[in-house]
């Protein structure tokens, strides 16, 4: 296929949809890793997948179903994860996976939707998704301005908040809902596993190499963008499903962590 196809206006909206989601997810990944909660994002993404299938099953409101399920999982995570940590996240992941596959097996369009969630349907995303994402981006960046010091303080100097009557639940919940909303939109666009990989891998690499928190955010977002753009081009040029190509590109980025010395 000719390289010219990459610049076809047909792909502009899907490209922007995915790019904005990749930026947000790789930024959220640094906070998720700092909180030792990266596994929770796979559980939330899987819950979004189950919600999407349930939404389609009950009346075609698949995006609403994905968002509702992801936010419900995030709220459950906020409260259960405080006590049970990774155990709660693993249970959430298994519940989501089981529900998604059972719904897929027993609904009319289930198999197609299930495959879409595995492979990603970025090239079919359109202006309506872009409007939603365009609202999400400034909202998320504005909230992170407020959340960032609180999330770091809560993790590194927790007594500073709780010892002065400032409960952590408010910013915990805000971050979890923000991440869940982004994961729900990303799971429907790039696929469940690719959405999770955008949270996990760029931050995983950034934590090894970055010299400061600000640098970690830059590394993480930069790596997420590079992997996203490379995989977008490769998936089009070689006519491959987008999600697996993105995960493969991120894995290539991830190998730098293990081959480089600390």
């Amino acid at each position: 296929m000719s390289v010219d196809v990459l610049f076809d206006s047909l792909f502009l909206v899907p490209f922007l949809n995915g790019l904005l989601l990749a930026i947000l997810l790789s930024m959220f990944g640094t906070y998720s890793r700092m909180r030792s909660e990266w596994l929770a994002s796979l559980g939330v993404a899987q819950a979004a997948a189950a919600g999407l299938l349930l939404g389609a099953f009950v009346g075609g409101a698949s995006t609403l179903g994905a968002l509702s399920a992801a936010i419900a999982a995030a709220v459950a995570k906020t409260f259960l994860g405080r006590r049970s940590g990774n155990d709660a996240y693993a249970v959430m992941l298994l519940v989501g996976w089981s529900a998604a596959l059972l719904l897929a097996a027993n609904t009319a369009r289930g198999e197609d939707l299930s495959r879409a969630l595995l492979q990603g349907q970025l090239f079919f995303s359109g202006p309506s998704q872009l409007i939603g994402i365009a609202v999400l981006v400034p909202t998320a960046l504005g909230l992170m301005w407020w959340l960032s010091p609180r999330l770091l303080l809560d993790r590194l100097l927790p007594d500073r908040l709780t010892g002065n009557g400032k409960p952590a639940i408010r910013h915990d919940l805000t971050f979890d809902v923000l991440l869940a909303t982004t994961l729900a939109l990303a799971a429907t666009a790039v696929g469940v596993m690719a959405a999770f990989a955008l949270v996990f891998i760029p931050a995983w690499v950034a934590f090894r190499f970055a010299g400061s928190w600000r640098a970690a955010l830059t590394w993480s977002v930069g790596l997420g963008m590079v992997a996203y753009i490379a995989s977008f081009a490769l998936a089009i040029l070689f006519d491959q499903p987008y999600g697996p190509v993105l995960v493969a590109a991120l894995l290539v980025v991830g190998t730098s962590r293990s081959i480089a010395r600390k």
Partner: peptide, 27 residues
């Protein structure tokens, strides 16, 4: 009254890209 505590076993993550200066600023 506001209080700050330095714990006997402070939170020390095995991997965190945060400088001492950033921690001081955060506090």
């Amino acid at each position: 009254l506001t209080v700050a505590v330095q714990r006997q076993h402070p939170v020390r993550l095995s991997e965190i890209p945060l400088t001492g200066r950033e921690l001081v600023r955060l506090a």
